[in-house]
Design a protein around this nucleic acid. Structure first.
Lengths: 219, 219
DNA sequence: CTAATAGTGTCTCTGAGACACTATCTA
DNA sequence: TAGATAGTGTCTCAGAGACACTATTAG
């Protein structure tokens, strides 16, 4: 039988929106290598689970939310990506709505924290590369699917929806053209509720018609 | 240190066009499990190489061609996908031009053979799923990149180019609209050569402007 | 009534798709 | 000259993008 000494892990790039900025969850390493540097959450795949299961497990451990969007991205396999052992990692990205994420990650100490992607700290391993890959995939999929629903609260305003696209795609849209386009796609519907506690004209709240990921040209 | 007993392999879904049909390279297994069934070529990742390198190595061993398009697809990790051991596989797809592929795979015995995707034989492992995934990715990428160049000979006619799209996307195109579209993309240029040995009006030969993969809306 | 954001319609221009005939080569 | 494929232009319609004002609420 073949001799091979490779360890397999899953890495989770967990995205959310906080105060109009895209953020990624990072943990602080308390052991070497890269002690005190940040890294994205990762862990070993167990012997009797597949990678999706492992990624979910790791995700719940850090955020305590279920019902999250999770997608396999890419497998990183440079033989020297971990200085200790030969480790291959299957990278995932997760999208969580800020209304869900507040539950656990926030209650941690500074060991688990969201960082805006515009100012990421120094990171161990090849995690910078993994995050860059994830951002690319996120942008790309935002353009042609209804993925934005997973980063929004269940009910949201059209302005919030537009802002999600503007932030992630880093691009401004015309209000009227944006609404016309969204309307033509039939991916969201009105609720009969409105914003409350706002000091201006309250906006109508909408929700997504379909929880499934659909292929749609949004922009 | 963590105990983990996982083996890592790479699977290659090797596509080419033969006689107006999309084909996949399969080998015949001469040992159990799945003895005498077909499978896509795969092999173990060596300790000091990354997965891309392993996939190239496996590819050259079967086809003897270099300069091939190779892309990582997805990592399949069901704990029971190999009945003997716990094996995780990183799947790749390769595109080869028929002018290149004839070199070695053809000279093999029946052990290594191309099968049209419309009539695939019974296959071991989860290879049906892997091939289906690869076909999806291929279709998808055909629509928005200049990937078709890797499945065509270096010089080709516009009819051949159109046929590539028609076969892979399983869809007919209007000759004039297709040419108008391709022309507007500036991805190919005329050579000053024409077809020879044909029994009708010989067509002009074209070649791709750029070997790099470009993002372009083709259809 | 002021400040702040929500919400709405029209025009222009580009590009996709429908459609049919002539040109060039071999045998 | 028959058979086979190459090669070419126009019109219509849909959708993208540019653009500015009125509506509604809280304080």
């Amino acid at each position: 039988m073949i001799k091979q000494k490779i360890l397999v892990t899953v890495d989770n790039v967990i995205f959310t929106l906080i105060q109009d900025q895209l953020h990624v969850l990072l943990i602080k390493r308390d052991i070497d290598p890269f002690k005190n540097q940040r890294s994205i959450p990762w862990w070993f795949v167990l012997d009797n689970e597949d990678c999706d299961t492992a990624a979910y497990r790791e995700l719940e451990e850090k955020t305590n939310v279920k019902n999250v969007y999770l997608e396999q991205l890419y497998t990183f396999s440079d033989p020297r990506r971990d200085p200790r052992w030969r480790v291959i990692t299957v990278a995932y990205m997760a999208l969580v709505a800020r209304e869900n994420i507040f539950i656990k990650a926030w209650s941690y100490t500074s060991e688990v924290k969201f960082f805006p992607i515009a100012s990421l700290p120094k990171m161990g391993f090849d995690h910078k590369k993994v995050i860059e890959y994830a951002i690319q995939r996120l942008k790309w999929k935002m353009e042609y699917t209804n993925l934005s629903q997973f980063i929004l609260p269940a009910k949201f305003t059209l302005s919030e929806l537009q802002k999600v696209y503007e932030i992630i795609l880093n691009k401004k849209f015309d209000v009227r053209n944006f609404r016309k386009k969204i309307d033509s796609l039939h991916i969201i519907k009105e609720t009969w509720e409105k914003e409350i506690w706002v000091q201006y004209r309250p906006a109508k709240l909408y929700k997504f018609v379909d929880k499934k990921v659909k292929i749609i040209e949004i922009i």
